[in-house]
Design a protein around this nucleic acid. Structure first.
Lengths: 154, 154
DNA sequence: GTATGTGCAAAACCTTTGCAGGTTA
DNA sequence: TAACCTGCAAAGGTTTTGCACATAC
């Protein structure tokens, strides 16, 4: 394991989270196959809200036999099990987030990066008579890195 | 015009909105072609957040020569001009909304319907150092109609 | 050993594009 | 008339599917 570069100070937290998620899969009776384990490890260690394609490209370097179908099957399973959130932050393709605690996302329209929004936003269980099970909040604009770059150029 | 069923009491508002939008297009120097006019009329009179396909299927009944390309071109133009909002409320396809004032959406996971949320939600111009230009809020769950149906069955 | 999952390739689906011909102003 | 737009068909990109083989427990 630990195929992906992680800052040493986060190593313990990373190991713990990976162990927790694997325990959760076992508890749910999910067969622990290689694709499932390496996709899980990738998502835990790469908080970049990757697309299916990005996961596939990253993993086939160390596991050349993996197929796109396995990526899609596994992600779909993880989403169904509730251990991964599916983000519709852009029209082109879905992005995935191992952090399933409710939080908003910010997408930079300049560099394309997707950020987590840490600030907790109000949650609602009901709105205008509809029963709310899930809330997705997306902000779009210019990220602080791109704002800094633009200022430096002035 | 008035090809689509509209409640009589809303007729005046409908006519006014359609006229306003046409004036806006003219002001922006947009050539008023048949596909553009009938798509605009469809969106003004059908507040169902349709997909490109739904627009196409509805319009080809009265205008059989219309092509998918025209639907996509026109919608893309309307989105660029800011007279239509593009919703990423589901992964499968984009949905479109002629109401461009900021408001959230609720999608029913039972019946699939997409509702406008009238209640104004807090707007932000900046979040965690990022400059916000656009906010999209999607709620998912069970709509009040489906809740009522479920209760009736009990 | 058996149920379940994988990998491959092809298909399905949504959206975009190139271009010849048609329409708008 | 000149610029622009449409319709058609094909292509592009993402995701799903069918099936024989492989793997986990």
């Amino acid at each position: 394991m630990n195929c992906f570069k992680i800052k040493l100070k986060n190593m313990e937290a990373f190991k713990q989270e990976l162990t927790d998620k694997i325990q959760l899969l076992k508890k749910k009776g999910v067969v622990l196959t290689t694709p499932r384990l390496i996709i899980l490890e990738f998502l835990v260690s790469n908080r970049i809200h990757p697309t299916a394609e990005e996961i596939f490209n990253a993993l086939k370097k160390k596991y050349p036999s993996i197929s796109q179908a396995s990526i899609y099957n596994t992600i779909k399973l993880f989403v169904k099990l509730g251990i991964v959130s599916e983000l519709f932050v852009e029209k082109e393709r879905a992005r995935y987030d191992i952090n399933t605690t409710p939080h908003a996302h910010f997408k930079c329209l300049k560099c394309g990066k997707v950020y987590d929004v840490k600030k907790p936003l109000p949650q609602m269980e009901e709105i205008e008579g509809h029963q709310v099970a899930l809330t997705q909040i997306y902000f779009y604009g210019t990220c602080n890195e791109c704002l800094k770059k633009a200022k430096r150029r002035e």
